[in-house]
Amino acid sequence: MLVRAGLVAHTLIASAALACSGEGPPGSSKVAPDPAPAQAKVEAKTKVEAEAEARPAMSGQTSARATELGTRFRDAKGKPSCDVEALAELRELRERFGPASPLREVLLAAFSACDERVALAQLHAETLPATPSAQQRLELGAAWLRASRYEDAAEILVPLAGELGPTTKAAWLAGFSLVHAGRPGEALPWLEGARAHAGGEQGSDGALLVGLAKLDTGDLDGAIATLEAGVAASPTNRSLLAALARAYASAGRGDDAARVSEQARAAFEHAAKSERQMTRLAALSSSLSEAWDAGRYAEVEQFIDAMWADAPPELREQLLSARVALYERTDRPADAAAARDALAQLRGQ
């Protein structure tokens, strides 16, 4: 959703990608060097290679076509963009020729652009070398996680974490997949180990996952302590508040549960209100754009005024920005200055 920030899965899985590329934030753990002997990798025949032997090879023309189709998954600004028709044609090529390069790379980009997460994970799995590197295994595990295939993710990530130790991203993601797969007891050592090593890098996500795992294993005191610490650091985090309320209720602390439940409800309602505003704004933007393009500035101003009355703070900042632009466009410098001042004030400048 629009205003739901910090989704655990996205954050964690994105961080896995960073770890794989060695671009993690300062202090973050990195995937350990590939434990597989280099010679073995060289000698190993990949599944793709084996499959390729049984299929016709792509002609130069077909390869060129695949590459050409691949360009359709970027928009004019270079951002990923899904082209359903191109994706369908790529799938046909894959049926005929298998997922060998260069089709594999094009398909990966296409699946990513089209948010076809299961297909993406399946392609990673099918094209995994016989002796994959740690990074390749981590990418595959993260892909299964993004596809919500938690058992598949755990199958890859748990052994990998065992090889690399609890200080890696693999351990964190292994724990994440195990929590989702309903195996919180197995998840906890990985989560806690990774969290301790990262020095709280996972922030509220870390507190939430560890707290939930403790809650589901019956460690109520541990869950409460973890979640309380998380809430102290992120007092408006809805998921943490909801989990803490549940932990209090489970521990028989009814008054605390009621109090925190109310905080959680308020946080969710605030978010819902924000979302309502933002989604309406998004939907109405087409009309607004038309008015702006046509120079119907009074209509634009009316729209902003209408939104302003009920707007949450984060939307007000955007609306003030819009006012500045509107007043500048309509040659109202005094109003623009006032709006700019209000914007600065809102931002605490």
Partner: peptide, 30 residues
Amino acid sequence: TVTSPCATPLAAASIAALTLACKPEPPAPE
């Protein structure tokens, strides 16, 4: 629904960005 594409425009701090970016155009994959 098509909501997210217009989140970024709002942050763009101008009406032009707000409106133009909310025209039908391909959003980022996420």
